[in-house]
Design a binder for these strands. Structure first.
Lengths: 301, 301
DNA sequence: TCCGCAAATAAGGGATTCCTTAATCTGGTT
DNA sequence: AACCAGATTAAGGAATCCCTTATTTGCGGA
């Protein structure tokens, strides 16, 4: 299986005929046909079959197309990536932090230090692997203990459960990170032995809290992130067997001598009053021209 | 540039020595060293240099590592992907729909039709390309006019601006889709000629509306998605030169004869009362065991 | 200085890739 | 039936890949 074979496959799938793909690629028709034949042999699936005067994808071909497109695109990107450019810093965090603090925090850091940091979202269990494989420079979230990594607490926080003053108490409302067993929300649900059937998942944490404020159930929350709703009385803290629960947010990176300079700069930045302030009250949006959509990171292999 | 060369590079980067990588890959040391040499020659960057007894990444190598890891992982995935499995349906939508209706809608569809649909998020401008390249089966969002594609309206809705009863009116608060110029929010901001400096971007639409309810500014909204907040008086409609503005959500797919059976099933499902009901009042979470994290789709090439 | 370790290079061989031209197969049209 | 367009197969050749063993280079420690 070769990148050029995958490229031929993608072109045929997109253009609908071998002839058109050959023309687009600037080679002869049998060249494309053979690339396709080898891919078919290698993968054991026809991938594209002729129907009338067009080549249409088989089910297997359709499943391959997305993967093949990505690989071809990444191949092109690889050439450009190694060319010199500004140093990048990649910060990964779990879902809750990504939702609430990533935007303002990264925005302020880039502004202060004139750097080009981007943030990524990943499952807690993937954080150590991302760091040790150097796909990310710094992780923020739960403490990580793995050889070669050092965690340092950056913010003390309180895990509580919240609901509407007279809302129902039998359902638990969580954001996507509620399905991450190592996240704070996931740990809390496990501590309380909440059965899966009583958990409802929302598109994001803010939506889960909104539903809780409307009385639909109870939601795990980091106290300072719901401070404004608690003050206004939209939400009240609900007593449970496990809450309130003290917790920390940690910053994790490689050991000092093996981490990049940018990672060190960011860790230093995290302990400044301004950064702490943002993590404590991150409710602001960020200016339009500084907005940078988060990267969603996942590890396959 | 070959997948196996990239694989060798990734192993050396991860394990820190050529020897360890060779052992892990089950080949001789020069085999790995040569793969690396060819990659270096091809890309014009040392990628990894020896420092003491370890190989450390150059800046270019660090930039390549993420891309190379993905390519290697995708290569492994490609082999598995073509094996027979349940037919997949991929539905893409813009940010707002993904946030509010994707979860419940896909959840109900999978339950009703016993299918395995997944949802993805993509910029509006990318929807037609995703469909014509068959990376997605159905798109929901703005109307798309492109050869070979047919759009059909699925829900009439009203675009308004909302804010707290006595909140400030000089700032506009948007979710990530506010930075997508073709989305409803983006179009509204352009119609009103809102300067970029007056726009603040939040991590999601729900957070933007929460900030609006707290008086931080005005937010574009689809009326029926903020119905509950309007009813409770947390938010009120704000008059502007362009709102209220009638709009439609459209479902777009390939022409009937060239689209997959699953796509047809989904389009039929979209017109059922249950689906309409969910799109109109999608505020529920979805059961934990049916939750499926959305895929974030982007096109490079 | 010499030694030892690890990376890099050299040389060679078998397999694969990737392209060409020419011939063949396949389905639908005239 | 004859034809035609487009896909496939066949055959061959140049280049590359990918592995081996043997050798050389570079560098830190005894």
């Amino acid at each position: 299986m070769t990148l050029s074979q995958l490229g031929a496959f993608v072109f045929v799938a997109r253009l609908g005929t071998v002839k058109a793909a050959a023309r687009a690629l600037g080679v002869s028709e049998p060249a494309v046909s053979q690339s396709l034949a080898q891919l078919r042999r290698h993968l054991g699936d026809p991938l594209l079959i002729r129907v009338g005067d067009r080549m249409v994808l088989t089910e297997g071909g359709r499943r391959l197309l997305g993967i093949a497109s990505q690989m071809v695109a990444l191949g092109a990107e690889a050439m450009a990536a190694v060319q010199p450019g500004p140093a990048r810093l990649h910060v990964v965090m779990d879902g809750v932090l990504a939702e609430h603090v990533a935007g303002p925090l990264i925005c302020l850091f880039n502004q202060r230090k004139a750097m080009d940091a981007t943030s990524g979202v990943a499952a807690t269990a993937e954080l150590p692997l991302l760091l040790t494989s150097r796909l990310a420079d710094v992780a923020i979230g739960a403490q990580v203990s793995a050889p070669g990594l050092v965690s340092r607490p950056v913010l003390r926080c309180l895990l509580i459960a919240v609901g509407a003053p007279h809302g129902r108490r039998d359902h638990w409302l969580v954001g996507p990170s509620g399905t991450d067993p190592a996240s704070d929300s996931g740990r809390l649900l496990r501590l309380l032995r909440v059965p899966e059937s009583h958990v409802r998942v929302f598109a994001n944490q803010t939506a889960a809290w909104k539903a809780a404020a409307e009385g639909a159930g109870v939601a795990p929350a980091t106290a300072h992130l719901v401070a404004s709703q608690l003050r206004r009385g939209d939400l009240v803290a609900v007593e449970t067997a496990a809450t309130p629960l003290a917790a920390y947010w940690y910053a994790t990176a490689l050991e000092p001598e093996s981490r990049s300079a940018a990672a060190g700069t960011f860790l230093g930045f995290l302990t400044t009053p301004a950064a702490t302030q943002i993590m404590r009250t991150p409710d602001d949006g960020i200016p339009r021209n500084r907005f940078r959509p988060p990267v969603h990171v996942s590890i396959w292999s």
